[in-house]
Design a protein around this nucleic acid. Structure first.
Length: 228
DNA sequence: GCCCAGGAGCCCG
DNA sequence: CGGGCTCATGGG
């Protein structure tokens, strides 16, 4: 099966995923279990910042744990570039504890906040994709997947996000090799799909949803309906 | 107890 | 340039 056909099958199976989940306007304080929600089409600036922070927090970490950290950040009114720059690193680490790697991630959040101070969201949105990607990758703590998640989900740029699930699943389906580089896998998708941010957004989210079900436990993909 | 989560940096051959 | 190590909480 080609990758466009796979997309169609996944969409048919799961429908729109509404990524990236963000906290609704007005926050989640006092509205208890309410965390980030799905299906927000137009995001305000604060929500875009939350996506950028979330992209860092979710590095090698389950979204469930990240969600708690994001709720804490909201409740402390820390979805804010200046406040992240200002807050003590140890204090920030405590707020995001549930997301794991909290010392590293506290530093990474401060790094990206400094970056956003220099290159505000609007400047990045108006920037050419390749240029914005290059600048993001120069930030310590931002690798290819995080940079591409930011470009796609916060800045709405048409770039395909590759993650561990993508590699595992498409290796298992025989379309790539698992030791292919990030850039090679990304190129494979982008060469075979139209450069459409909405499509890339949905496709990556669908891969995550599908892989959580069929590619999280070994042996991978045994009951996957995309095989054959 | 083990493996895995919507990775990245660093060091080393 | 590729491979191994570290970072850390939380669920299955």
């Amino acid at each position: 099966m080609g990758i466009k056909r796979i997309y169609d099958r996944l969409f048919e199976e799961y429908g729109s995923q509404g990524w990236w989940p963000v906290t609704p306007v007005g926050g989640c304080k006092g509205v208890k279990p309410e965390g980030p929600i799905y299906g927000v089409a137009l995001k305000n600036e604060k929500q875009k910042i939350e996506i950028i922070f979330g992209a860092i927090l979710t590095q090698n970490t389950s979204w469930k744990n990240v969600e708690k950290a994001i709720i804490s950040l909201n409740n402390e009114d820390l979805i804010n570039v200046d406040k992240i720059i200002k807050i003590d690193k140890t204090e920030l680490a405590a707020v995001i504890k549930s997301a794991g790697y909290y010392n590293q991630k506290a530093l990474k959040l401060k790094n990206i906040a400094e970056f956003l101070k220099k290159y505000p969201i609007k400047a990045l949105e108006n920037m050419e994709l390749g240029k914005a990607r290059e600048l993001l990758l120069a930030v310590n703590g931002v690798g290819p997947e995080t940079a591409d998640s930011i470009l796609l989900y916060a800045l709405n740029k048409p770039i395909f996000v590759v993650d561990a699930y993508t590699k595992r699943m498409f290796d298992n389906l025989g379309l790539i090799k698992k030791d292919d580089s990030y850039d090679n896998v990304q190129e494979f998708f982008m060469k075979n799909l139209p450069a459409d941010a909405k499509l890339f957004n949905e496709y990556h989210a669908l891969i995550v949803e599908h892989a959580k079900r069929y590619y999280s436990k070994k042996p991978y993909g045994t009951k996957c309906f995309l095989r054959g």
